[in-house]
Design a protein around this nucleic acid. Sequence first.
DNA 1: ACCTGAACACCGTTCAAGT
DNA 2: ACCTGAACACCGTTCAAGT
Lengths: 218, 218
Amino acid sequence: MVGGPQGVEQTICKEFRMARVAGLDVAGIVAAALAVADREGLDKLTMRRLSTELEVTPMAAYHHVSGKEELLDLVIDESIGQLSLADPDGDPLTELAAWFDALHDMLMDHPALAQAMAGRRLEGPQAVRAARSITACAQTAGLEVDLAIELVVNAFGFTLGSGLYATSRDAVQAQKGDRDLAGLGADGPMLATLASARTDPSQFRNGLKRLLQSYLKE
Amino acid sequence: MVGGPQGVEQTICKEFRMARVAGLDVAGIVAAALAVADREGLDKLTMRRLSTELEVTPMAAYHHVSGKEELLDLVIDESIGQLSLADPDGDPLTELAAWFDALHDMLMDHPALAQAMAGRRLEGPQAVRAARSITACAQTAGLEVDLAIELVVNAFGFTLGSGLYATSRDAVQAQKGDRDLAGLGADGPMLATLASARTDPSQFRNGLKRLLQSYLKE
DNA sequence: ACCTGAACACCGTTCAAGT
DNA sequence: ACCTGAACACCGTTCAAGT
């Protein structure tokens, strides 16, 4: 698509650099960080583990990223940037539901991402871009600015919290839940349903729709 | 209330022990951990920092708690246990709103708590007790078990996510937001409102009521 | 039983060199 | 400009002693 001999040369050069010799760039660092976090968990993502992933010295990445904090912010913002923006001309409810569903799917695919978002500012350029797009969407539905923002903030909080809750109970836990049923009497069905939240995103979608509809029906 | 000379003696002895000489107990350890996390942030809560807070050796706490993971679980469960249970005879909507409001208030008072809950199981005895009480509350409102649980899970996720979002933007950030307004053009009002979420819990309460009502109006 | 002391295998990051 | 190497001040936790 970029085409031409130069394009090919650049690609080869880039791949070569990313795989073996130094030649680090932020994109490669961020990608490697997310890969490690996905495979081994957020707590295992350390600057030193990142350096072994990139096959460089522990300090190499610091030349492209100020430190671990900035790295995490970049991983988050880059991920948010991969969600397609809401279409301002589409049906508001459909567009909003689709965006937050996509975000939720992403958090389910990358549990470390949800965890990283907790306690972080989420004000990178991609996040701001996305926020603007979905807020505009809510406004075209007839909502005043303040209410549109309230909807966005609340829907985001709901999506993040649901993602965290769901990803904190993985397969191992669901298994263990079955064993606990006998000992917990009346709580059995409850815990079983709680545990099933991991694999059943319909609870989230249901709640999201309820929340969005209550704002858009005004 | 426990009364008698023995009660007094125990109290004196306990205070003496907690303050100076070893004599650690889980309650004291958990309290100290929350105190450190509140004052210095969750990332500053280390087993070693905890030990200096308790004025003991780094390894002393390990005799009462298996490690850092269990410590965090205990801090969370103990905190949840301090919320008053929902009254099964009260108005369901009122009771549910009150419980999640109280949880939200707690997360706002203890930002480290919200952060600690992200990526943790929340299945301690106090959490289960609370979940049972609010689920029962939703059931007396006429909801089937599955839907009652869906409501509880979704309301919890919303509360946690909102708490995380709100506490991640503290006073410092709100200040910085004002400076950014000029450079961001049309985003100005939006970011200002986003930043105000920290001190304005009405957005959360509004969203919570909408979510709860959509389930209870069935 | 409960706490200490020393040790191990890690962290994030600074700083001075190398090329 | 970009990377390395050595070092510093931390971590969580094990393990062998002390009382």
